[in-house]
Amino acid sequence: MKAAPFEYVRPASLADALELLAEPGPETRIIAGGQSLVPMMAMRLARPGRLVDIAGLDALAGIGRGDGGIVVGAATVQAEAERSPLLAAEAPLLAAALPHVGHVQTRNRGTIGGSVAHCDPAAEILLAALAMRAEVELASVRGPRRLALRDFAVGAMMTAAEDDEMLVRVLLPARPAGLAIGAAVREVSARAGDFAVLAAAAEIGLDEDGVCRHLRLAVGGASPVPVTAEAAERALLGTRADTDAVREATRLVAPLLEPWDDQRASASYRRRVAPGLLARALETAAERARSPEE
């Protein structure tokens, strides 16, 4: 399991990196953490002619406030995001997703942008970001563009990025003010730390009367791209999100799913379990919102 030969470039700046991407020639892939790309190269399922290493580029690193929300540089390492007090406070759903991503060794290398751009249907970071209605910023020598993540993630392992474009930032909307927020990710996997068979993300905001004023729900692993459960969100907004209401509303996600059979689970399993898993995520999120000190 040795990768096919390739050329390796470590550009000094984002501009240089974009120049490299725009050059004609061998298939060029961006590498940052490489935690998904390198195994595919080792198995020769991917064989880029050239790797452009963006890991060290300052322009792509770090988590900060901006654009009315939180801006996460694409090359931000997952472990750094996991430790970020800003992310925990302002983007609790993404923070809740991170411990489910791989293992400590892979989170020490893998990046937020890498996971989003890889666009695995079961990936937790993509799931949380989609649930949060994130946007992404792409860059190329032709200039930057910004689009909704749901328009970026067009299919399983497929994005709307052109060959010369690079994902440079993930933009997370600000959490709503004045609400008690709770967030949770629940998943089924063959074993802890594995790719999820099925994953659910929920973020809830309760006003001081305990009424649900903000809701973000999504399910991954049961469709080519994680789906946001908008009908369920609408059904629960303005309610107290009690157990029965949650059970009822989360069922509304089922028709959105396009599940498949594989070695880990059947399509019928995914379809049957997804609403219940989403309900669990939401119940956990609501508990956290009600007792925020946890």
């Binding site: 399991m1 390198v38 195994p39 080792a42 790797l51 060794q105 892979t106 290398r109």
Partner: peptide, 28 residues
């Protein structure tokens, strides 16, 4: 050689990583 077993773990700048999921040039 695909990042599952962890036998190849090393510390990179003090934190554990899988050394099969990293080309040597990336550790420069």
């Amino acid at each position: 050689e695909q990042g599952v077993c962890g036998a190849c773990s090393v510390l990179l700048d003090g934190v554990p990583v899988r050394s099969c999921l990293l080309f040597a040039v990336q550790a420069g």
